[in-house]
Amino acid sequence: MNKPLEELEKKSIAIIREAKAQFKNPAVMWSTGKDSTAAVWLCKKAFLGKVPFPVIHIDTSYKFPEIYEFRDKIAEEWNLNLIVTKNENALKKGMSPKKGRLNCCTKLKTEALKNLIEERKFDALILAIRRDEHGIRAKERFYSPRDEDFHWNYADQPAELWDLYVRPSEDFSHMRVHPILHWTEFEVWQYMKQEKLPVNPLYFAKDNKRYRSLGCMPCTVPIPSNAATIDEIVEEIRTSKTPERAGRAQDKEKAYMMQKLRALGYM
């Protein structure tokens, strides 16, 4: 095994096992994207091949058909205890990106997850975010406590020393655990390749376009690309000049808008 990848994997697996040991009721979040697929795989590897806790997929109902197909296929192959959750209430009331993207995300993702946590009493969620991904995530910790409103007090986080991940005795509603926080996008793809992990077909180029990150259909745009295999993707990322989430309309627009407003003195 490639040495740097081996080190990354070891650290991730140790973190996942710590979470399992320290929390009563953990679960892992799975969007079917590359990062969370790698994270679910690491959970498998950490426990001799069987993920010993639920795997949560939030269905906004605006996802690509390929996502649902991929999800069900892998869930069966990997013998996952899959929980699919949806904010039926908001959907019934007609929630869609047309009502404001943030609004839509809040209702269909955040609120759906809140409801599920409440119902199933999860006290730790394993999430596949990475520091290099964007913005504020650079400030994330491996263990990151959230309150009931999912609020993250990043300015006043507990210190995290060495590999001593601590479960606080109070002041959190659930813990976010970030086992691949220290990986880069490039390393995730290399790992996918090395481990021969299944890749959602949306990542591969079709008609000179492919998705670099997977969100909901209305809010994700493909990037121009001819990369049709993992090798080609690895090469593309290695030489890429644009940030990963450039394809996510929401993030790009928002970042740009913020810049504009700042320049005008609003913030």
């Binding site: 520091r131 290099d132 964007h134 913005g135 650079a138 300015a155 006043d156 940030p243």
Partner: peptide, 29 residues
């Protein structure tokens, strides 16, 4: 602003290594 693209943490490469800057904290705490 405390948010957005905190690129101070972007990994950078030399001929030999991938360097990652772990945290570059502000003044508070």
């Amino acid at each position: 602003g405390g948010l957005t693209i905190d690129i101070m943490h972007t990994p950078f490469k030399s001929k030999k290594y991938l360097y990652t800057i772990i945290d570059c904290p502000g003044h508070k705490e």
